Computed example of a mutant assay.
Amino acid sequence: MTKFLLSLHVLAAIIAVGPITVAASMFPPSARKALAEPGSERAVSAVRLLHRICRVYGGVGIAVPVLGFATAMSMGVLKDAWLIVSMLLTALAAMVLLALVLPRQEEILEGIGGEDGSGTADEAGTDDGAGAGTRTAVGVKATAQLAMFTGVFNLLWATVTILMIVRPGSTTGA
């Protein structure tokens, strides 16, 4: 049963977290492109799709810690330091995604008119009335901040992955 649970856990991590890390990383440059090309439905559609991938796979991603916890229980490693650190980092990654990445993606998407097609830069706080140049400059700042939060999210997942492979202190660790 342990091998089955471990297999499901790893597959869930690959299938759920992989798309989030890639889509979230692609979002800031795609948003900058959409901000630089006002009225480009193709650019807005790309940003909308990347956000949807992050949202949907974020929901599916709950399977990763659930299966991981079940696997750890069957392996009898719930008290191991590497696993406790991994669980804490996983929780932190989820909080970064839910509190910092997804809300900022939504704000940027609303600012480029991508959520429902009716947003304006002023509604998202990305235009001070001075025109597209200011909107783009503020948008660049917002997308840079989003890129930083996305990098933190990705770094947390990379650290969890390394801990899961190396398992410091374990008899099977590298």
Rank of each mutant, 00 (worst) to 15 (best):
S170D: 11
A81V: 06
F27V: 00
A91C: 07
V160C: 01
E107V: 11
A130R: 14
V64S: 00
S25E: 07
L88C: 12
P65W: 09
K79G: 03
P29L: 05
R104W: 06
R42Q: 14
A121H: 10
V166Q: 08
A94N: 09
A174C: 12
T120K: 06
M148Q: 15
A124V: 03
A23M: 05
L6A: 14
K3M: 15
L5Y: 02
K33F: 12
A130Y: 02
M73N: 08
N154E: 01
G151N: 00
Q105T: 02
A137T: 10
A132Q: 15
M75V: 08
D128I: 07
E41F: 04
F153T: 01
A63Y: 01
A34Y: 08
V152L: 04
S86R: 01
G129S: 12
L49D: 13
T161E: 00
T2A: 11
M75K: 13
V47M: 07
V10E: 09
D127P: 04
L11I: 15
L49M: 15
L8G: 09
A46M: 11
A91H: 05
S40N: 11
I15T: 09
M73V: 13
G114N: 10
T21L: 14
V60E: 07
G76R: 07
R135T: 14
I15R: 09
A99S: 07
A94L: 12
I14V: 08
A72P: 11
E37W: 04
D127C: 10
G173A: 13
E107D: 13
S25A: 14
M164C: 03
A124R: 00
A144S: 15
V10D: 05
H9V: 02
G18S: 03
G173C: 10
T143Y: 10
K33H: 15
E110K: 15
D80M: 10
A137P: 11
L8F: 08
G58S: 04
L102W: 07
A72S: 13
F27T: 01
G133M: 08
G129V: 10
V140R: 13
T21A: 13
G58W: 01
V166S: 02
L109K: 08
T90H: 05
